[in-house]
Design a protein around this nucleic acid. Structure first.
Length: 574
RNA sequence: CGGGGAGUAGCUCAGCCCGGUAGAGCACUACGUUCGGGACGUAGGGGUCGCAGGUUCAAAUCCUGUCUCCCCGACCA
């Protein structure tokens, strides 16, 4: 491709609204332009990268026998009503009506749609297992789209769904997808972790997330360097302590704490460490009010809490209701003396602690000397705390690493969650009608591109891994007025392509500085520079984007051979 | 949804308080000089100042409404 024909509108200046590297660089490098909040045009350079990622995904899925199809984007409400997700999905789903007033959604995910297809087409266990996937645009009306394509409202996702007659088959396919995802991200040049995760809206049983490690990630990941345990924040377990109440034999006493509502403020006033506090948080879980007690220096992880309570989701109780229940303003809730209908659960972080500080359920007062077991008897001890880096590994006790990550893939075992309610069944060997066992497997294509940039850039621009680079080599003639430079560059460009390399020729009449700056920005991994200076000695220069200025001098033919050898090493897979 | 900020040239922004001929840098066009890490000069092209009302002799500027975008938050007591 010739630069003058390629439509790569690079920018000298950073866009004003881009906060993270991938967003900033995608706009500057002429990959991305915004159209609406969380909605972007993918320019040709970006499209090339997307197609490369998709090609890798297709290759790896073909290896595990998954079959590509394409499901519609415009989805009738009835199917979603069958599973109850028309209401459950809430405002996250983009909805519209046709001229007759019929309701539709723009597909945020496709479990219902693919299950509907399979229930009407697949009759027998002989047709199983079946793995179907598509690569398609998804729509989610995110609360707050941000970070460019990392959290957009319209994005490209590969979603796969598998159907099985028995658990062993689900397990085998789940493992296949797990391994295929690992190979995809590896081939894309990404450092990632696969972690135990919680299932969110999709639901189901076992599931794993694939997290690309990056400071700008929106998720928290915990991993153990000694035993290999890894889990997302919503899943990572605390080490279960023995839940014996402490006993310091201090009397329960009220203290005045006017206007001090946060742990920090009360801690300062009383001179007691936050770890000696009980935070009492009221949640609504399936219509019931639950008081969750957690150590003052810790936070509740709502996903874990929901699982511990056996409900799909928990919600914090609104301030008005909190006042009603505790009889005090928000900020003074405590475990002692709550109405009997409020269920009380205590997090393990409080186990064995005595002489605690807590709200007094009276505006302007806290209590000291609180003993769990004496002053309040929790209905249950649970693990609902959000871990922090350095917490002990639940498997081996070594300190956990806490890092941020970008979720690029998520795989689930669904069981019969969808097939059962939708009546999707097959006949087994004994002629019995049984619901399909299912798995589903998502991989964010555009998010993977952004994650690749987050992990591979420097202050000058993108540093593409060869496997997903828009081009493998960029040929840069430094002086377009020199017939010799142009001629040699053109010949190198042609020969590169003849050798099967994907080449970009910067045939713009610009000065050398601009070409170098743009080359750094768009991040093509190899560069062959042709200038009068070198041609005097019959050589051109080869540099990698990573090394940038460190040039090796070769004859044109050697240069191509050198680059070709490096590219073939790095292409991987295939 | 709540709070804050911003909409002026393709991009980054000034001008608005204090109403009076619409600006700068980058980008673009032409010519010249330059030419190995984002050159310089000269001359140009390009804007219904988000939109709709209102006040005024006169509105980018003041007032009202509205739309859009960005940031923060959405209850951790």
């Amino acid at each position: 491709m010739r630069w003058t024909r390629a439509f790569i509108p690079t920018l000298k200046e950073d866009p004003a609204d881009a906060e993270v590297a991938s967003h900033r660089l995608m706009v500057r490098a002429g990959m991305l332009r915004p159209l609406a909040r969380g909605v972007y045009t993918y320019l040709p350079l970006c499209r090339r990268v997307i197609l490369k990622v998709e090609a890798i995904v297709r290759e790896e899925l073909a290896r595990i026998g998954a079959i590509e199809l394409l499901l519609p984007i415009l989805l009738p409400a009835e199917l979603w009503r069958e599973t109850g997700r028309w209401d459950l999905y809430g405002p996250l789903m983009m909805r519209l009506e046709d001229r007759h007033g019929r309701e539709y959604a723009l597909g945020p995910t496709h479990e219902e749609i693919v299950t509907d297809l399979v229930r009407s087409e697949v009759r027998s266990y002989r047709q199983l297992p079946l793995s179907l996937y598509q690569i398609q645009t998804k729509f989610r009306d995110e609360i707050r789209p941000r970070f460019g394509v990392m959290r957009g409202r319209e994005f490209t996702m590969k979603d796969a769904y598998s159907f099985h007659a028995d658990e062993a088959s689900v397990d085998a396919t789940y493992r296949d997808f797990h391994d295929a995802y690992g190979r995809v991200f590896e081939r894309c040049g990404l450092a990632f972790r696969d972690v135990e995760a919680s299932s969110g809206e999709i639901g189901g049983e076992e599931n794993h997330e694939f997290m690309v490690l990056a400071e700008t990630g929106e998720s928290l990941v915990f991993s153990c360097g000694s035993c290999g345990y890894a889990a997302s924040s919503g899943r990572a377990e605390a080490v279960p302590s023995q839940h014996e109440a402490g006993n310091s034999a201090q009397p329960l006493a009220e203290v005045e704490t006017p206007g001090r509502t946060t742990v920090e403020e009360v801690s300062e006033l009383l001179g007691r460490a936050p770890a000696e506090f009980v935070k009492t948080l009221l949640f609504q879980a399936a219509g019931e009010t639950v008081a969750v007690l957690v150590r003052g220096d810790r936070e509740v992880e709502e996903e874990k809490l929901g699982r511990a309570l056996g409900v799909d989701r928990v919600e914090m109780t609104g301030p008005a209701r909190v006042c009603e229940i505790t009889g005090a303003e928000v900020g003074f809730a405590g475990p002692h003396g709550l109405p009997p209908e409020v269920r009380v659960v205590a997090d393990y972080s409080l186990a064995g602690r005595g002489n605690l500080v807590a709200g007094a359920n009276r505006t302007g007062f806290h209590v000291t000397g609180l003993e769990i077991g004496r002053d309040v008897e929790p209905d249950a001890w649970i693990d609902a705390v959000r871990l922090v880096g350095g917490d002990p590994c639940p498997r081996c006790g070594a300190p956990l690493d806490g890092t941020r990550g970008i979720e690029v893939g998520h795989i689930f075992k669904l069981g019969t969650k969808y097939s059962e309610v939708m009546g999707a069944t097959f006949l087994d060997e004994e002629g019995r009608q049984r619901p399909f066992l299912m798995g589903c497997y998502g991989l964010g294509i555009t998010r993977t591109v952004a994650a690749a940039i987050e992990q591979n850039h420097d202050e000058h621009g993108i540093v593409w891994p060869v496997a997903i680079a828009p081009w493998e080599v960029e040929v840069i003639p430094l002086n377009m007025d020199s017939p010799e430079v142009v001629e040699v560059a053109e010949r190198i460009y042609d020969d590169c392509r003849a050798e099967g390399l994907e080449a970009l020729l910067d045939d713009r009449a610009d000065r050398a500085g601009s070409k170098f700056a743009d080359a750094d920005l768009i991040g093509v991994p190899w560069r062959i520079v042709v200038g009068d200076r070198g041609l005097k000695d019959g050589v051109v220069e080869v540099t990698s984007r990573r090394a940038r200025k460190d040039a090796a001098r070769f004859s044109p033919q050697e240069a191509i051979a050198h680059v070709r050898a490096r590219v073939l090493e790095a292409r991987g897979g295939g």
